[in-house]
Simulated scan of single mutants.
Amino acid sequence: MTDTAPPDDPTRTDPDRPAVLVPLAVLEGEPLPTGTPDLLANAHVVLSGYHVIPEQTAAEQARAQFGETAMAKLEAVAGALRDAGATVETRLVFTHDRETTIDRLIYEHDCLAVLVPNGTERVDSVLVALRGTVGVGRNTRLVAGLFAESDVAVTLYHALNDGETIADGEAFLTGVRSDLVERGMDPDDLEVVVEEAEAAVDAIAGRAESHDAVIMGETDPSVTTFVFGMPAEQVAERFLGPVLVVQRERPAE
């Protein structure tokens, strides 16, 4: 596996900008989905153009053959994100193992979230599904970092766990709401919804239909297993919009 890392975006000076990994199969013609620049206008985007090569092909060989074309496509995508207001750094990777590559990039760049890239025509409302599986502070950092300066309506949603009451769920989300207000969110833009649900994924997907994007935490210790086939992907497939998957904090060791 080899990757090209152009100089970091010199405009990345705001520590409040959350870092979001956006993986694209650049040589397969995967485009930047509609609405992504608006969704990530206040983010620091780590744009990863990757291409999976056969085991018998050396990454250096693939880079020599396709690197210039791939980088040109990647920079065009980066330009659209920068035009919307995002700061961007690009990584072009030729790899035999997509999952390992995505994991590595998440941790190398301290990404708060990974985008499951589906399109949306607009970004007026966002569903934030909270299950307590990822530190709440990481969720609120992402939400406030992306939307505190916008008019986006945010619905904080919690499907009750076994043994929880409605009062428990409301207390949990009230604390999250207070944190977001302290981080600069307009309280009028924040709605709190708690409900009982037999299957959390089904409930989130159903709620997502009336929103333009979803933010949810990973529930599996393996980042890429989750991103490429676990609940976030299931939600994205059902409501056909972008899903931002908030990552667990990397262990100190």
Rank of each mutant, 00 (worst) to 15 (best):
residue 34 T to C: 02
residue 215 I to D: 07
residue 59 A to Y: 03
residue 102 I to G: 03
residue 101 T to I: 12
residue 23 P to F: 03
residue 229 G to A: 12
residue 103 D to E: 15
residue 193 V to F: 08
residue 243 V to L: 10
residue 84 A to N: 04
residue 225 T to I: 10
residue 78 A to N: 00
residue 195 E to H: 05
residue 123 V to W: 04
residue 159 A to P: 03
residue 135 G to R: 14
residue 94 F to T: 02
residue 44 H to S: 08
residue 107 Y to Q: 07
residue 174 T to C: 08
residue 208 A to T: 03
residue 133 T to P: 08
residue 242 P to D: 14
residue 83 D to I: 11
residue 36 T to M: 13
residue 119 G to H: 00
residue 163 G to M: 05
residue 149 E to D: 12
residue 166 I to A: 14
residue 150 S to Y: 04
residue 61 Q to Y: 12
residue 195 E to M: 10
residue 150 S to W: 05
residue 64 A to W: 01
residue 127 L to W: 00
residue 95 T to R: 00
residue 180 L to C: 03
residue 143 V to H: 01
residue 4 T to L: 03
residue 46 V to I: 15
residue 41 A to H: 12
residue 70 A to W: 01
residue 94 F to C: 09
residue 7 P to L: 05
residue 87 T to H: 04
residue 228 F to Q: 15
residue 56 Q to W: 14
residue 204 I to C: 04
residue 199 A to Q: 14
residue 138 R to P: 09
residue 202 D to T: 13
residue 252 A to Q: 11
residue 53 I to Y: 06
residue 53 I to R: 05
residue 186 D to P: 12
residue 224 T to H: 13
residue 53 I to E: 03
residue 228 F to K: 13
residue 33 P to T: 11
residue 110 D to V: 00
residue 249 E to P: 02
residue 172 F to R: 13
residue 25 A to T: 10
residue 244 L to S: 07
residue 127 L to A: 12
residue 75 E to I: 07
residue 24 L to E: 13
residue 140 T to F: 06
residue 70 A to H: 03
residue 200 A to N: 05
residue 205 A to Q: 09
residue 177 R to K: 15
residue 147 F to V: 04
residue 78 A to T: 01
residue 178 S to M: 11
residue 130 L to D: 00
residue 7 P to F: 02
residue 53 I to F: 11
residue 120 T to M: 00
residue 189 D to V: 03
residue 80 A to D: 15
residue 155 T to H: 08
residue 173 L to A: 09
residue 153 A to D: 14
residue 190 L to C: 07
residue 199 A to M: 14
residue 224 T to W: 04
residue 54 P to E: 10
residue 64 A to T: 10
residue 231 P to Y: 10
residue 7 P to A: 09
residue 141 R to P: 08
